[in-house]
Every structure is written in structure tokens, then in C-alpha cells.
Design a binder for these strands. Structure first.
Lengths: 113, 113
DNA sequence: TCTTTTACTTAGACTCGCTATGTATGTCCA
DNA sequence: TGGACATACATAGCGAGTCTAAGTAAAAGA
């Protein structure tokens, strides 16, 4: 199985919002979580993930909060915002529309009788 | 319905190969055909389509042949090659894998008992 | 101590879809 | 005849987003 990660373009935002809707997470955790849940398919690179998170935060769709761990280390936990939830709902719909359009090409409808 | 054409990235090659597998077509026809079949969803721009066709031809996946019309005009008909058919079969599989991975994120599997 | 893992950041390359423009001809209608 | 519109292909340059690659830093484990 060869993952086609270029298919990701345009979907990564939705994936991230979707994860963060389920619970707040930090970057490194997101990478691991995506990999585990997709059974190894998604392996976000840092160069993909962090800029994406920064973009989402800048757009007000997520909010990052630094959190201090007992051992003194810091993690940046991202929470989805209300705007982010609206956006996610919209993107899910758009994703369905896209799939439907693709299906029409791959399996052309027979002409109506 | 707002088409999310950026989802197209990485899928346009497959779409084109898929169309051309069904029958040889020329550029302008492809644009129209995609729009009709997808019920208006896909509206390839020239700046998307023609470079894509050139790339596919350069990779040996399709083959363009100029054809003279009775009225003296020329059209470039593209045919899928054997390599193109192999590639398409592979991309369909990869597309399924991608969908499966997405689904795992959107609808997390319940933990096994 | 040394390696691996955790954790975040960013610069630069590359791909690919888009806008915009150019060329040229055919068709339809007034 | 002239103008508008559809047909038909091409490409330069922009922009968005993913990747490679490198840097920083500290905890955990061998």
C-alpha cells in the first residue's frame, strides 16, 4: 500500500479540525494520533503540521494554549473554536459534494429512460 | 453548493485518465464533459487542463494526435496508453486507500472489546 | 554517556491549480 | 457586413500547501 499523500491537499484542515473537535491536542500528539487512527496511512511531517496549525490559529478556527508540564516542559494544546466547528461542519458537507462529483465521473449515470 | 475545487489536487490526473479510458477526447471536449457529468461541479480551467494534459503526455500516460476536421480546423485528440491504463488502475486503488484512511479519522473505530 | 524520543519552529524547494491573456477560426443573428 | 459568442489550444506568472531539511532543546532509557 503506497499512500498518496498529495491527495491530502485541501483535506488537511478538515482532518485537523476534526481531531481537535474530539479533544484538544498538541502538535506531536496529533501526528501520532493521525498515524495510529489511520493505521499508518497519514504521517504528517512537521513541515506540514505546524504551519497548518499556525494558519488555522491565525484564521481563528483553533486556539493554542501553552501548558506547563510537571517536569517543566511546555506543550501547546490546540482547542477548536466556535468558528472552527462551523467551518468543520461546512467542510464535511463540501467533502461529501466532492465525493459525489467524483463518483459521477468514475461511474457515469446511465441515461434516463 | 460551493464546490471545493482545491480538493482536486492530486485527483485531476486520475479524473483525466478515467475519462480518456472510456474514449479518446480533445481538450475542450474534456472540459465540457467533466462539467456535464459532474452536474456542474467540475469546471476545469484552461490553465489547469492543458498543462495537465501536457504533463500526462510527457509521462507517456496519454498520447495526443492532431486530427483535421472537414472545416479545416484542428483538434488534438488524446488517447490513453497501456501505461496510462496501468497507472489509472493503481490510482483507483490508492484513492480507495485514501478514502478508507479519511473515514478512519472521521469515524473512529470503537476500541476492540 | 549516548541514543532515542519528545516537542516545536522555520527556510526553501516543488507541485499544481488558478487568473489572465493571447491566438485563431467557425457560427449565428441583425 | 459586422459584432457577439462559441470553439480550440497555449502559456506566463501567482499563490497555496506539502515536503525536505535543518535547528533548538530537554527528558527518558540503555
Amino acid at each position: 500500500m503506497i499512500p498518496r499523500r498529495d491527495l491530502l491537499k485541501g483535506s488537511s484542515n478538515s482532518l485537523l479540525l476534526c481531531l481537535l473537535e474530539q479533544q484538544p491536542m498538541y502538535g506531536y500528539q496529533i501526528v501520532k494520533e493521525l498515524e495510529v487512527r489511520s493505521q499508518g496511512y497519514f504521517k504528517f511531517k512537521e513541515g506540514t503540521l505546524y504551519p497548518a496549525l499556525h494558519r488555522l490559529e491565525k484564521s481563528g478556527l483553533i486556539l493554542g494554549k501553552w501548558q506547563m508540564l510537571p517536569n517543566g516542559r511546555q506543550r501547546r494544546y490546540y482547542h477548536i473554536t466556535a468558528r472552527g466547528q462551523d467551518k468543520l461542519a461546512m467542510e464535511k458537507t463540501q467533502w461529501q459534494d466532492f465525493l459525489a462529483a467524483i463518483k459521477l465521473i468514475l461511474q457515469p449515470e446511465p441515461a434516463s429512460p
